[in-house]
Structure formats: C-alpha cells, structure tokens
Amino acid sequence: MTLVLPTASPRRKANFTAYELTVFGVVAALFLLALIGPMIAPADIYTSNMLETLFPPSAEHWLGTDDQGRDIFWRLIAGSQLSLFATVLVVILYSIIGMIVATLATVGPRWVDELLMRVTDIGLSLPGLVVSLGIATVLGPSLQSGIIALALTGWPMTARILRTTMRQTMEQPFVEGARILGVSRTRLMLKHVLPNSLDVLIVKWAGDISFTMLILAGLSFIGVGAQPPSPEWGAMISGARGNMSIAWWAVAAPGAAIVINAVAFALLADILQVRRDPSLRA
C-alpha cells in the first residue's frame, strides 16, 4: 500500500506551503512505518529476556526496555501497525456504515429517512466511549472487540454529514440531467451522488483517525481492547504502568507515539479543512 499524496499532481504542487508539505510528509512516513514496522523489528521483541528488564534508555536500547526485558523502541515500531491500522480500520468500518445509512436515507421513502435520522440523532447523543466499553465488555476483551465496538458507535456523525451533502448534491444540475437521461435511481446514487459527496468525508477522516486512535488506546488501557503482550500502544502503557516509579519511560514512550500520530493527523485535518474553506485561513 502506498499513500497517494495530493502532491503527486504537478498541477497543484506549487500551491502547497512548506508547512503543509511537512505535515503530508510526516503522515506518509507514519503510514510507511506502520506498513513495514513488523518486518524491520527484530524478532526478540515478542520474547522475554529477564536479564535486561526495565533498562533505562541507552545506545543499545534507545527507549530502554520493559518489564519483560523487551526493547521498547522496536516494540513501538512493530506496534505502530496495530495501532494505526486498527484505527484506520475503525474509521473505514464506521464510514461504510455511515455511507449505507446516508444512502438509504437519501434514496428511501420519507419515513425511512425520518427513522434513520432519528436513530442517528440518538447515536450522536450517546457517550461513545462508554457505549463502546459496554459493547467491548459483552464481546469479551480483545482488539477485535474494541474495533467492532468503536465501529458500531462511530458512524452517526458520518451518516449525518453525508446525508446533508448528498441531499445538496441531488439538487445539482448534473444529477437532474442524468435523471432525465433515464439513469436508474440506484445507479445514480452509487455512480454520481455518492462519489460527488465524498469529499466532505476526506477532510473528516484525518480528524477521525486522530480522535479514534486516542479512544482505541483508551479501551486497551482499561483492558477491553488489545491484551498484553500485544505491542499495541495503549496495551503497552497499561502493561508498563505498574513499574512507572522505576521505569517511567516505558509509559512515556508509547504515549508519545500516540501523541505524534494523533497530532500529525489533527494537523492534516486542519490543513484539509482550511483548503476546503479558505475563510478559516489565518
């Protein structure tokens, strides 16, 4: 998988500032790291080495070792795939649910629209983390449960935004034109309205990844998400917590990794948002 950056198009290249290019570069690097992380990490990060437990950062172990004597730096690298890809998966899953709900609400009869939007409103006003915690508890603690729980609670905002946009797209002349040409309703939705409404989601995705990463790590920390000895970052913090007074770096490092990712995606979201709506520019 390679990340296709907007910079790939030479037509628009000149329009990006150095700051924007830096943020794009960092996000691309994070994706790349998540992709190759488990491949480049040494094998011994999954096995205990009781002779080297809780070492402070050194030339050999850049971020020290954890209570099982495993190198924290390489566990972070290896875990970035779990943390980032699980987050992205959550966002993809609930975006799909959101798209289905929004499409049904747009094409369906009025009562379907009403019903789905009321359900969406209810979903929006429920505390996501708490409901996810409930779902994950019922499903049994694991990273999969965490992913499913967040996918089931994350979709309402996407559905709401997308439905509004799709309604607006439906009123545009080209859709009217296609309808006159006899394009079927389903085809019209899937081929024209949905693709033309998606750009609002692209901006949202970057922010969603940032936010979802924090919640997913939180679920792992409480113990309903990824379980030790997984190098998922939330689980790493949870595991290192007990020894914080003697090895605080084992808690600090995975948290910093989460912050770096979350900040990078939040900045990306900010850039995309300003590009869509230049009135927000500083």
């Binding site: 914080m244 600090a252 912050v259 939040a266 900045l267 500083a282």
Partner: peptide, 26 residues
Amino acid sequence: FDGIARIVAVTGGAMPAFWLALMLQF
C-alpha cells in the same frame, strides 16, 4: 500568538487522557 496557540490546541487535543494522567501524576 495565534499560530502558537493553534499548535498548542491541536497538541492538547491529541493527547490520550489516561497517558496525560499518568505522566502528570508521576
């Protein structure tokens, strides 16, 4: 100030609460 405040806000909003709690506590 505007620029710095925005970056501080983005960073502040992107910190896992439990981790921040652990670090501050420590």
